[in-house]
Amino acid sequence: MSKLALKVTAVETLSPLVKRFRFESPTGAPLPVFSGGAHITVEMPEGEIVRRNSYSLISDPYDGSGYEIAVRREDRGRGGSRHMHTKVREGDEITVSAPANHFQLDLRARKHVLIAGGIGITPFLSQLKQLGMEQKPFELHYAARSREEAAGLKLLPGAAHIHIHISDEGARMDLGAILDGQPLGTHVYTCGPDGLITAVADQAARLGWPKTSVHSEAFTAPPPGEPFEVVVKSSGKTVTVKADQSLLEALEAAKVEIDYSCRGGACGRCETHVTACDGRILHNDHWLSEAERAEQKTIMPCMSRFKGARLELDL
């Protein structure tokens, strides 16, 4: 994965829980442009551990002058977003990955319907810009509990096809009404809590939408948990995963080579075979099927944890 050494050039509070960050090249060289829905992985070194979280890019995909992300502070997380909120200041140096995209627009669609819940608005902010440039018909629905929490409001342009649903104001999102009657060839994209993603998928299925027109991204940072140990098969080495560290981060810290992209259990890149398992894998990813989870033969180290006597990984 190629890395970019950037500088933090702006930090802005969008809501009590959400901050916007802007990164630019210290030399002023243009950054690689990207596609709507892409993310970058941000490195957050703290003491001897390096946390890495992936965040959707919210800036104009074709503007190489800087990258912007919006980070929601998760106080019960393992510290990545807290680090961004409390430690990262304007002028700091910051290392990020080149953009990658697991939530791209399907440009074959005749129309795009984007449905965001809460901080799930972020990937759509760059997609909106791409759709605008491509002059593709779309509508966006953004649901949030309260206006105060709806950090995305500050980042959304006011436009007729952008609909805001604030549940505290009694304006709940009606998925049936949104999806029913869309023209043939419409694609729907959902980003937000699992419940919303499932609700949209169910609604689309009821209306007979083809599965290939229904897209979603459930992007969550890895949860903390109890510490545990894993054994690396090739070297026999035991790696300890701390409470506020993901298995992937612990393996990286132990210099075990492992592939990743989303770091959020969505892309499948980090999938690892389990060669011995005496205990229970706590699957937190969105990648493995129910059957695969039950088998306990594979694990997604970016998200999942373990409880038990012994877990050996084919690495």
Binding site: S2, F34, A98, A100, D259, S261, R269
Partner: peptide, 11 residues
């Protein structure tokens, strides 16, 4: 296929 899907920009 797995390899190709993993190709990222800049590499």
């Amino acid at each position: 296929l797995k390899f190709l899907l993993a190709v990222t920009q800049e590499k």
